[in-house]
Structures are given as structure tokens and as C-alpha cells.
Design a protein around this nucleic acid. Sequence first.
DNA 1: ACACAAGCTGCGGGTTTACGCAAGACGGCG
DNA 2: CGCCGTCTTGCGTAAACCCGCAGCTTGTGT
Lengths: 240, 240
Amino acid sequence: MKVLIVEDDPLHRSYLHEAVNAALPECETVIEAENGTVGEKLARDHKSAHIVMDLQMANRNGIEAARTIWKERPETRILFWSNYSDEAYVRGVSRIVPDGAAYGYVLKSASDERLKLALRSIFIESQCVIDREVRGLQQKSLGQTNGFTDSEYEILVDIALGLTDRAIARRRGLSLRSVQNRLQHLYDKLDVYQSAGDDHEDGRFNLRARAVTVAFLRKLLNYSALERAEAELQEWLDEK
Amino acid sequence: MKVLIVEDDPLHRSYLHEAVNAALPECETVIEAENGTVGEKLARDHKSAHIVMDLQMANRNGIEAARTIWKERPETRILFWSNYSDEAYVRGVSRIVPDGAAYGYVLKSASDERLKLALRSIFIESQCVIDREVRGLQQKSLGQTNGFTDSEYEILVDIALGLTDRAIARRRGLSLRSVQNRLQHLYDKLDVYQSAGDDHEDGRFNLRARAVTVAFLRKLLNYSALERAEAELQEWLDEK
DNA sequence: ACACAAGCTGCGGGTTTACGCAAGACGGCG
DNA sequence: CGCCGTCTTGCGTAAACCCGCAGCTTGTGT
């Protein structure tokens, strides 16, 4: 068995290396990549079937890398090992995982034991292992309880990118009014009106901008989600 | 000599611990804190004069912690050790460093040698050590070349928070028109008009929202800056 | 088949933004 | 002192945004 480690922090990389050696005696080779780009290349060259991947890397983040890897070989098993459980990450990951693929999501704050267990479960037993904390988010996120519909999330991203209502309408194939309709739902759910009208009509917010901020503060959005969305936007703009 | 380490990642913490031991034989005690809150408390209890501090910690980030520590004892020497050189961080740090204080800013990607050298320079020689990459930003940021004025940065934060023009005017003591004036300058500098009018008048952006996004993508803003700004905003709202 | 909820859409309006134009205010500088 | 650049402010306008109201299309359940 061969394992590929994709992680930009040298300390974490060598820690992972040791953990893999300890948890998987049947693994005879471990290779390392220090960013997503190199990770993709090595995965292709070695036809890696077992990958441990950091999200949030400078050069090319884990979600992007995982997407192209899975596109080439959907049966690849990937364990995401991340510092954060932002809803933006969780959503990003579950959006790209192929049907029936074995994968995992473990936080860096987890114990040695948990990490090693996850390594065996995923790589040997082909099970999915999702950190408890992450799991909670996932349920809320995909179910509708207090969570966001895909369409709401979509429009959130669109205004975060700075598109006008009209542009969003064109991009998503909707009428202007529908876009504004969805926006209203979004404002509701994000509770953007909060301290707006409490005193007088004084400290009112710009709803559109405020919504984006609140989403950021709630980890619904984060830098890497923005980055991806921006890339998709440019793509869409180019193809006219 | 005593050194306090404030860093939330256990791996990085023990790495720092070793580095301090190796670089500073005259240091007889090293204490550790795993977040900003604990860091502040330990600094107070031990009257720490030498601190190595991570920015970006979950509980209370390095800038906040450093601010209160410096408020209590301005002669404290602090070495910031961070993964990123976002302009938002650099600006945040230089805003709170007291006059004549010795401090440093070293990236985690720096070599062992550089870290150890910095430790000695700051803690023993009371010099300021700023990573080259960071230094570049600082110059641009504080000088005006291609950088942002304080007033421009200020208004950027305000719209990022989601305030209306009117609210900003009230908060900053300006007229409505002046606020809009500053906004225009900001839009210019952020080059928000970019692909707006190239094809036709099609894919136009919502300037206000777009400005925030671009600032994020350029690392002019980041999560922790937003967080701080939000806290200040709430404070201002409370005191009426 | 009928009722009901959820989402899309057009209409109309009140409010907020973006910004050109132009008149002061302030601070160097020869 | 007068000239000039930067910053502030008021006025006015066109565009964008927020949203209540109401008619339509769906899908779902009993």
C-alpha cells in the first residue's frame, strides 16, 4: 500500500508521516506533497489510491485538488485533515465527493488515537469517518433545520462576489424579482435586521453587505470558498 | 529570563519550545498558553517580559491579546509568529505596537536559523525584527504608494461591516457626501470597475459589495480583522 | 381530484447608492 | 501673499435596491 500526504506545514507533514507509519504497518511507501498542485501531480503519477489531504493550503487548496483527483479516479480514498470545521469547508467537501466514495474528515485537534483509527477505517475498511463536530454541521447544513437551502447559499455567494441583482438573474436564469425574493429569504435567515430598528431608525445596515459579513462571522463563508467562487465566476464571464 | 509562548497548535508549540531552548540558553523557564485568553492571564501573573505569540488563534487572537498585554506593560517584548503576511495582520499589528517597543514579526515558513536569530535579537538586543516579506507590505501599507490611506482603510472596514452611508457618516463625524466621496476613492484604488464595462453594460458589479470581496481576495481584510471591527462596532452601538 | 404550501414572476413605490459639478476650507511653498 | 493640491460639503439625477401585493406554476398529500 502507498499513501500520499498533501500538507503544506512541514511540522504537520512529518507528524502525519509518523501517524501513517504507526497506524498502517501494511503501508510500505509514503510520499509527500507540500501543496495542492504538487499533490495532484503526484497522485496522477503514482495512481495514488490513499490520500491524506489538508484543506487550506496556499498554492491550491485541498478542495480543488481533491476535485480533480476524484474526477480522474473516483474510487480514490481521501482523508481530509483540517484545522477548522467551517460550514463553508464542510459544504465544499460534500459537494465534490463522488457517489459511494470512501472519505473522511478529521480535525487536527483530534487525538492521535482518533486520527489513527480514521486512517485504518478509511484506507483498509473503506468506511466514511466524519468527525463528530463536523457531522453536526453537515446534518444541519444539508437538512433544512436552521440551515440554508442550496438556492439560498447560491445567492449568498453571488452577492458576496459583488454581483448586481441583474447579473445574478442572468447567471442563474431567473427573473430580477426572483433574485430579490431569494435575497429576502436570505436576509431573514441571517437575521440581518437585528439591532437595525431597535433604537430608532438610526443604525440601519446595508442589508446586502451586512448579510455577507454575518455569513463570514458565522463561518458560512470563508476565504477559500470565496476564492473558488471567484474562479467560477471568472470562468462564467469568459465563456460569455 | 522567562519566556511565554502563546500558540494554539500543540505541534507548533513544542517546536517553539525547543527553538527557545536552543536559541536562548540564558532562559531558565518557558511557559506555554494555548490561546489568547490564557496567554493574557499568564503574562499578567508572571509579569512576562518576553513573549512569542501566534496570530490567528480560535479563542482570542494574538492581536487582541497583545493589545491588552501592551496596555498593561508597554515594555514587553513580543515576537509575532504567524503563518500569513496578510496586509490585514500587518496593519493590525502596527496599529497596536507602543512607541519604542521592541517587537518582531516572523513567518512560520522561515527557517530555524531565522527564528532563532530573531529570538535573540528581540529578547536580548531589544531590536525590532520584521520578516522581509512582511516588511514590504508594511512600507506599501504605511507609505501611500499603491497603498491605502487610513481613511480609505477605515471606510473599507465600515462597508465591510455592512453599515449604510448614513451610519458611517454619523460614526465618523462626516457628511453623507464625504462618505460617498471616500467610497469613490476606494473603488478607484481597488479597481472595482475592471471587467464591468468591457463587453457591454452587462456584467456590472455592485461596487460596494465587490469592493469588500476584492479587499478580501487581496488579503487587505481577513477574518480576524472583521472580527475585531465587529467588536468595535458593537461597542460603539452600545454606548449609543 | 382538490387543497395547500413553496417558488417564480410582474407591477409599483419608497429608499439608498453612485457620481458629476462646483463652491468653500485647509495647508504648504515659492 | 497668492497659487495649487487635497479634502469636505451641498445639490441634483439616474440607477440600483428592498419589498408589499397579487397572479401563476409546480409538487405533495389525503
